[in-house]
Design a protein around this nucleic acid. Structure first.
Lengths: 329, 329
DNA sequence: CTGAAAGCGCTAACAG
DNA sequence: CTGTTAGCGCTTTCAG
């Protein structure tokens, strides 16, 4: 566990010189440089980031806040963030908040205590007030989920438009009785997706039926099953359902199946997110693809700019409708 | 961004005293303590972990090495690790290695450079040599996947026995033609699970048929489909298959379904890991449950002991066979 | 091109 | 019970 002093001594130079060859910015005579490098090798020296970070008042760590690590929706985004971060010599701390303020706070403390240089928040249930307050002092980006224009830069897709296209697709293949499996409207994206759903119906002169709009507490498989049960029990049963998450849609699929009905003949299904499993179901799931990976790299890039003190603007990325078996017999 | 000096000045005490109330170990007069706490509040002071960590030569960060973040197998383990780590004031850095030495090395560097205090490795493809070398200088635990008794403490289950029980279950419900969907035998657990498979067959006097043992490169859904295709094409077709991962088994399920066959009547299926999705398939999947969460807490506990310089021993945890629809008509 | 020295923010002897 | 002081390991002026 050699330190920079010992290297300096061994090489017969000052610590400043060792530091210079370590960072490669300043000019060092070739001969001196070689001496130092030899000493480094001899002593098996590894520079300590603890020392460097304290000196530079940075940690080179960024936090990613997600509600649950098991949610497949985040995988590609995280990969994007990670790759961008690594390329700029940042490491990422993946923080599962369980959407609980207490856990959130543990991680917020990390940035308050300088153990993290910034935060990418993907938790829709994050405490917006705390976030706003933190954003005043620290670098923060909202990714995918965001609380609206609250002065914190975000990267996301146009949820209203995506939802509109999904529903329009269902209408165009002949459906007029279309259910919406949405989540709690306290989330902005839930409101936006509902709005897109209504716009599509309106455009084709289809009335909005309250009973066709379901709300689930979470975006999980079980919630999808339960909601589908309710839909199937409706007196004037819909012939299609648009779920605002793939997991919801997959739960619906299973329930339709269990009821002895056929997808898409008896009930067409559209999901949202294009998670890996959406391709493993039977039938495969029509869904909205978000440019996850890119969203991650963009968010990470924005955050690093913010850390550097640069000005950053919010970004809206493109999405795509992926038509698969659950809407095409 | 006040520092400890300013707090000391404001409170009219020395930095040592501030440090004492911060850490609460040493006795400080109540009155002094109150003065300090007031100053802390006044200045909105947050102690910097950068300073503290450098002084204490620790980072209070532990690394978790996993091949892919999207593998549901690891979710509960990670949760276990995280909760135990948080309770001891450690944060976890989740590192996706993609089973690539280059990426591994980026993360190994973090412990070499003192940005991490230890590693929990769950990557079966990890470079055992590098790991052994690192284990000489740093705290390292192997969790779930391990390279055998190479002197690095591990926590795992008895893979041979688990496999044995799974196959025995299939035999007991009447199967004698049982395929094994295994992965590359370079992995210890693959060899162990094969061995359990063979022991069960031997116990019932069933000959081992080479053609019934398949090997896939990865433990994914597609590999399960492909392997199942081969099994279905076998001249003397098996009536049951034991797959060493749920994802493999789920792929098999889909393929059997696509072939118009029925599970479990035409083909019984057993998986391994009890991932969440194993309960969402149709039919639900019989599988081996590992005590994931506990495995995580135990691994984290061991690692922290190791960091503290204590002696730790390897642990073998219990497993359980979960019988569901894919083996019970 | 190189060295001396200050200091990032904190903790822990040591002395009182 | 409290203050003084010496670093933890590194980077960066400032001189030379």
């Amino acid at each position: 566990m050699a330190n920079i002093q010992q290297v300096a001594k061994q090489a017969g130079v000052s610590v400043a010189t060792v530091s210079r060859v370590l960072n490669g910015q300043n000019k060092v005579a070739l001969k001196t440089k070689q001496k130092v490098e030899e000493a480094i090798k001899d002593l098996n020296y590894e520079p300590s980031m603890l020392g460097r970070n304290l000196r530079n008042s940075e940690s080179r760590i960024v936090l990613i806040l997600i509600p649950a690590i098991s949610n497949p929706f985040y995988f590609e985004i995280i990969k994007g963030i990670e790759n961008m971060a690594l390329s700029q010599n940042y490491s990422i701390l993946l923080c599962e908040t369980d959407s609980k303020p207490e856990k959130e706070d543990i991680y917020f403390d990390l940035v308050r205590k300088k153990m993290a240089d910034g935060i990418i928040s993907m938790d829709p249930a994050v405490n917006v007030e705390t976030l706003k307050e933190l954003a005043g002092k620290y670098a923060i980006i909202q990714c995918s989920e965001y609380g609206g224009d609250i002065g914190i830069p975000y990267v996301t897709i146009d949820n209203e438009e995506a939802s509109y296209r999904a529903v329009k697709h269902l209408i165009q293949i002949g459906h007029r009785k279309i259910a919406l499996m949405n989540t709690d409207e306290k989330f902005l994206y839930a409101r936006e997706r509902k709005s897109g759903y209504q716009r599509a119906l309106a455009e084709y002169g289809i009335p909005v039926i309250e009973d066709y709009m379901l709300y689930t507490q979470h975006l999980g498989f079980e919630q999808g099953q339960q909601a589908m049960k309710k839909i199937l029990a409706l007196p004037d049963r819909p012939t299609a359902v648009f779920a605002v998450s793939d997991l919801l849609a997959i739960g619906a699929l299973k329930e339709i199946n269990a009821a002895g009905l056929h997808v898409p003949n008896d009930m067409a299904v559209v999901g949202f997110d294009k998670i890996d499993f959406s391709n493993m179901t039977n039938p495969t799931l029509t869904t909205i693809a978000q440019p996850m990976y890119k969203m991650g790299t963009v968010a990470a890039g924005m955050l690093i700019d913010l850390i550097r003190g640069e000005q950053v603007d919010s970004v809206i990325l493109e999405h795509e409708l992926i038509i698969r078996e659950s809407t095409s017999g």
